[in-house]
């Protein structure tokens, strides 16, 4: 393994390459690591730079997720959502976090599937939970929720107890089903 770079060194190299398109955010706290924030237009370039640039070589996309900033006024993110990428390099043993603001009315982000295979399901789950589309991801079906589920559960305006989905089933007593309920079909397909 090579020498791991600190997040500060990585953001420095990024800003050398991308300049104005990149802003750096330092969360509060003693041991906080820098987070780079890029616009979604330059996200694809940034990610492929991080993957291929000698010395960085992030060959491992650890995770993709999103944060809904509806009830939290985070100064570094001016839009409602932020897609969050956790990167790791098995070659140099360093980590990095990247964020992209995503507006609510036009919620899409370019997909990272071309670069890392692990993005396929991570993006699919993020789409399922937040309703953010990943353009270029070939499989944008719902992952965890039923395919006819309305709404996106991890959005802050979705109630914890749902909107009655969990009560809408036919009821079976000893004599068989007595009420139609939602008339859902079984999982067999």
């Amino acid at each position: 393994m090579g020498t791991p770079l600190t997040p500060e060194q990585i953001t420095e190299r990024l800003s050398k390459q991308f300049g104005d398109e990149l802003s750096v955010h330092l969360p509060p706290g003693k041991s906080a690591a820098q987070v780079a924030i890029v616009s979604r237009e330059s996200l694809e370039d940034t990610l492929s730079f991080l993957q291929s640039e000698a010395g960085l070589e992030f060959d491992f996309l650890v995770d993709v997720t999103a944060v809904d900033y509806l009830h939290f006024d985070e100064p570094s993110i001016q839009e409602r959502f932020a897609a969050v990428y956790q990167l790791y390099s098995t070659i140099h043993n360093h980590r990095f976090t990247l964020k992209t603001p995503v507006p609510e009315d036009d919620a899409w982000v370019p997909s990272a599937v071309e670069l890392w295979g692990s993005a396929l399901w991570a993006e699919r789950e993020t789409h399922d939970m937040y309703g953010i589309r990943f353009k270029g991801n070939p499989d944008m079906r719902r992952l965890l929720m039923p395919e006819d589920f309305p709404g996106f559960p991890l959005r802050k305006d979705y109630p914890l107890r749902g909107r009655g989905e969990r009560d809408a089933f036919p009821q079976y007593l000893d004599s068989g089903p007595i009420s139609g309920g939602a008339g859902k079909e079984g999982g067999g397909g």
Partner: peptide
């Protein structure tokens, strides 16, 4: 809620 229809079917 995704498993419940399966459970009902199997019970049936």
């Amino acid at each position: 809620i995704k498993m419940m229809p399966v459970l009902l079917k199997i019970y049936e």
